[in-house]
Computed example of a mutant assay.
Amino acid sequence: MRLISSIRKLGYRQKIILYNLGIAQDNLKLLEENSCHLEIRNFNFSNFPPSMTQLKSYRWKSIVIAQVLRDYGSLWYLDSSVIFEKSNVSHVYDLVNCYGKVRKRPPMLPSYSRDIRENREPHENGWDQKIWENNLQECRKSQYLLHGYSGHGILSVTHPEVYKYFPTNPGELKKEKAKMYDAGFVFAVNTRQTMMNIVKWYFLCALEEDCMAPKSAVLGCQFVDDDRFRTYAGCHRYDQSIINLVLANQFWYDRRYYVSQIVDFFHIDRAGTSGNFQDHMKCI
Results as ranks from 00 to 15, higher is better:
Gly171Ile: 13
Leu155Trp: 12
Asp269Arg: 00
Tyr163Asn: 00
Trp60Leu: 13
Asn27Tyr: 14
Lys101Asp: 10
Val68Cys: 04
Leu30Gly: 13
Gln14Thr: 11
Pro167Leu: 04
Ile116Leu: 15
Ser46Gln: 15
Glu85Met: 09
Asp182Thr: 09
Gln143Trp: 06
Leu30Thr: 11
Asp239Val: 02
Lys86Arg: 15
Arg270Pro: 10
Asp239Pro: 01
Arg192Val: 06
Tyr72Trp: 13
Arg120Ala: 05
Leu155Met: 12
Cys139Glu: 01
Ile7Val: 15
Tyr19His: 08
Arg192Met: 03
Lys215Ile: 01
Arg237Ser: 03
Tyr232Gly: 00
Gly11Tyr: 01
Asn20His: 03
Lys282Leu: 01
Ser35Phe: 08
Gly272Tyr: 10
Met108Lys: 11
Arg255Gly: 01
Asn20Arg: 05
Tyr99Asn: 09
Ile23Asp: 12
Ser150Leu: 09
Arg230Ala: 10
Tyr202His: 05
Asp210Tyr: 09
Phe45Lys: 08
Cys36Asp: 14
Asn249Asp: 10
Asn44Ile: 06
Lys15Gly: 01
Phe223His: 03
Asp210His: 07
Trp76His: 10
Lys29Trp: 11
Glu176His: 14
His267Asn: 11
Gln54Pro: 00
Leu30Asn: 15
Tyr181Cys: 02
Val246Asp: 04
Gly220Asn: 13
Thr231Lys: 12
Arg13Gln: 07
Lys130Asp: 06
Ile17Thr: 14
Ser51Leu: 03
Arg13Phe: 06
Pro110His: 03
Arg13Ile: 09
Arg140Phe: 03
Asp26Trp: 08
Ile243Arg: 01
